[in-house]
């Protein structure tokens, strides 16, 4: 093997190893994990689940912890507007009674797929106050582009 070729190969292997090391660190040590919850739900009985019969923001610990129960359906989110204080630990529970949807808070790294039959759980914390746009980023039919919601992050509790 040519020596330049060998050097290049070593460089490539080291680079991949470094990438994987960084990803592993953030995944396992810093807790920056993609969704991984495994709760199932009958998509035809979403409205009979107490969390999703009344989609809402639930204050678990005022100013500190909030649970958001959200239904994503063709072509809207419920609730359509959410408000949480900055810095609070926010946990989204989202499910769909019809087709697959996406959930993306534009301008942040908060997003996930919503798959009928499953409950998507996302943990987030919003440090910057303001009004965020939530969009569906998984094609869900001819009204897909109407599907959006607002997230208001307030200055304080």
């Amino acid at each position: 093997m040519n020596r330049y070729e060998r050097a290049w190969l070593i460089f490539a292997v080291l680079m991949v190893a470094a990438f994987l090391g960084i990803i592993a660190y953030f995944n396992f040590a810093a807790g920056l994990k993609p969704p991984h919850d495994v709760e199932v739900i009958d998509p035809l009985r979403v409205s009979q689940d107490p969390r999703f019969s009344q989609p809402r923001v639930e204050e678990v610990e005022p100013g500190k912890r909030y649970n958001i129960y959200m239904v994503a359906r063709m072509w809207s989110y419920y609730p359509r507007e959410i408000q949480v204080p900055r810095g609070a630990e926010v946990r989204f529970y989202i499910t769909s009674p019809d087709v697959q949807h996406g959930f993306q808070v534009v301008g942040t790294n908060v997003q996930a797929n919503v798959i009928p039959g499953y409950v998507t759980v996302i943990d987030a914390r919003f440090e910057k106050p303001g009004e965020y746009l939530i969009v569906c980023n998984e094609y869900c039919g001819r009204g897909h582009h109407f599907m959006r919601a607002k997230l208001r992050v307030t200055e304080g509790y």
């Binding site: 991984h36 797929n113 798959i115 499953y118």
Partner: peptide, 11 residues
């Protein structure tokens, strides 16, 4: 970004 698949398998 899918639910239902654990972190370990994704990793």
């Amino acid at each position: 970004m899918d639910p239902g698949i654990s972190t370990e398998w994704k990793f």
